[in-house]
Design a binder for these strands. Structure first.
Lengths: 217, 217
DNA sequence: CAACACTTAATTGTCGACAATTTAACCTAG
DNA sequence: CTAGGTTAAATTGTCGACAATTAAGTGTTG
């Protein structure tokens, strides 16, 4: 789906670290010792530093000069802030997708939805995980806005996923989400930019409220 | 206004490089040779690489493995994409500012506008440059959303400024922009999130159209 | 016993050298 | 003269060591 091939060893390390952080193998808030990582992953500190720099670009770690890097801490306010940004950017993505997606791409999007809807009947977890992600990715890519794609795909989505994984969000909202997705695609199909943006924003707002209630448990 | 102090030599180099790129001292699209920069700025290549990494985080340079880094190229489509993202994010910032700014902060914002309006009477350039930037900064900071602040202040704004500087945008739109700013602050003062977002989005849309016409000269 | 200063250990920042890869220049073959 | 391949130069990637800074520990003094 999204080919992200590693060329240098810094690439490989970055991808592994990012995954370990998102999945919680390296817990949120933990200090990242360069020496420790260097021996753990069997690469020089230069590679480690390069990797940490890139993680900082993704907002997954925070660095302070002469002190070091820590994995970001997850908090309720952090989640709210993240979803506000996401609502804004993905709303714009939906608007631009309605403007720029080809008819073929829209057809594929319809096909994707029905496919996911049918498979969700059996094991409902699949849709929530991969299906939802896939849907949002296609909209974002459909915007054809490189800047927007960068921000969301290489930045925000990993943080969103980190919240989802570490707060244990696999929950329901499957059937209702499907309907919301369908309405969004219809709006895009009708080239109704205004509606597409509005529906996407509400969809994310609902999603956020859903997570927030779980957070206060 | 915004204290961005450099601690390490990599910090200093980063700030200088960023400035040189935005101001066009290092022209858009140019290759950044590590050796060359290393001798020019009298620091080791490690520092140069660190600086380039951070510039990449700002989307001011693009890197390819085993090939090197180049300053981003300025294009019409790039500008449009940038402004779409900016419209989206700053619209959200205005909405959140209407929700989170204190009454005192709003008062200061009003004061800032009238002050800038009076000084603009004489030398009109001042308002467009510093005043406009200052206004937008305050709104963004008023959102109290760290994620949003990061994206805009440390990312997009430098690119926007790069476009402005290198395409020679000092132009008019002063008086009309003032009125638009005033309306936005009024909406924020009334805690009307919906209107504040809408007005900010239109304000940026106008600004973009204004620049776009100049671009096609 | 608390607070401050000093010393020491650990961590990050910076450097120069070597390895791996890419780019170019050149040469050869068709 | 062009196309392809080979070698050489230049550039980026990686490494280990040293310098600078921070954090921890220790002791001293009020």
């Amino acid at each position: 789906m999204l080919v992200e091939q590693a060329i240098t060893s810094a690439d490989k390390l970055f991808l592994q670290l990012r995954n370990d952080i998102v999945e919680g193998v390296i817990p949120a808030g933990q200090k990242l010792s360069e020496n420790e990582l260097s021996t753990t992953y069997q690469v020089s500190r230069a590679v480690i530093r390069e990797g940490i720099n890139r993680l900082e670009s993704c907002h997954l770690v925070e660095r302070r000069a002469n002190v070091g890097a820590r994995v970001v801490a997850l908090s309720a306010t952090g989640l709210v802030e993240l979803y506000d940004v996401r609502e804004s950017l993905e709303g714009m993505a939906a608007r631009l997708a309605a403007r720029h997606m080809s008819d073929d791409e829209i057809d594929e999007l319809f096909a994707l939805l029905t496919e996911h809807h049918s498979t969700a009947k059996d094991g409902e977890t699949y849709y929530q995980e991969a299906g939802d992600v896939d849907f949002h990715y296609r909209i974002v890519l459909g915007s054809k806005n490189q800047q927007l794609i960068q921000f969301l795909v290489n930045g925000i989505y990993h943080l969103v996923r980190m919240y989802r994984v570490q707060l244990g969000m696999a929950g329901p909202r499957v059937s209702t989400a499907y309907d919301e997705h369908l309405q969004i695609v219809k709006a895009i199909s009708n080239r109704d930019e205004e509606l597409a943006e509005m529906l996407m924003r509400r969809h994310i707002l609902y999603s956020r409220n859903n997570i927030q209630t779980k957070l206060s448990d």
